[in-house]
Design a protein around this nucleic acid. Structure first.
Lengths: 128, 128
DNA sequence: TAAAGTGTATTATAGATGTTAATACACATA
DNA sequence: TATGTGTATTAACATCTATAATACACTTTA
């Protein structure tokens, strides 16, 4: 389970969550943080599968999910590339952040906390 | 999928998450919010199963999970009751809140946001 | 032109997990 | 004694994840 670095993306796969989802998550994370260059080429399906010790079908499913989100471009015979447009990446970042905050709001409301209590906890908690 | 009220607890089961987990979540939520009285009797395994249109094994699994957390007491032949001690409930509430905040922190860090950005988002977002 | 490397699709198989079903047993109470 | 509790076991089934094997379409390059 040692991390694997490739094209600015760190892959670490654990059990407990679908592999293809973890691949999607880690590519998205690298994009949101700006760790990858736009238009950069990713490893081929078979190549990444070998690196991650995973079935090619699993990588392909992840790549296809990412392509549907406008984050990847795939060209038959050429390979898979990070999108060259900054908009889908920015949209992704805002989307995921909003979703994460909304999730916290729902959970805190479910538990009977106020917004002020949530803010206080978020200020107190260790960040890095 | 219409909600079912019983003993101060609202049950609503959706597909997409294990049924026994949803039962656990909703009992925990009611406890955290103070919606249920301590020492109160819950529906029997078979009774709740019938109400929720679910297998008795599924309810039993949820009850057992809750008992392991000290939130329920079960007595052979008598029934299942909310704990009579406030401590496990308070501990649960703090635990779940901390976990929820920690989850947000991890996600925001993964996306490259600062604590200040997270706080700003949490202040802006609609609460109720 | 041929070969190698791309993405893509299909089918079969296996394993894990969640859920139901049926049945039985232990215990408490009316 | 009968009924209603919690508890345990076993079997069956559905869904999802992942692998495996194979084939095809397309691009690049030797």
């Amino acid at each position: 389970m040692e991390p694997i670095q490739v094209a600015g993306i760190t892959f670490r796969l654990d059990p407990g969550k679908p592999l293809y989802e973890q691949i999607v998550d880690q590519v998205q994370g690298a994009l949101a943080r700006g760790d990858v260059k736009l238009n950069e080429r990713l490893p081929s399906v078979r190549e990444l599968a070998q690196l991650l010790k995973v079935n090619p079908n699993t990588v392909m499913r992840a790549y296809q999910d990412l392509e549907r989100g406008g984050l990847l471009m795939t060209y038959r015979g050429q390979g898979t590339f990070i999108t060259d447009k900054p908009q889908p990446v920015e949209r992704l970042k805002q989307d995921l952040a909003y979703r994460a905050v909304a999730h916290l709001v729902n959970e805190m409301r479910r538990l009977g906390f106020s917004r002020e209590q949530a803010l206080a906890l978020l200020q107190e908690v260790k960040w890095s």
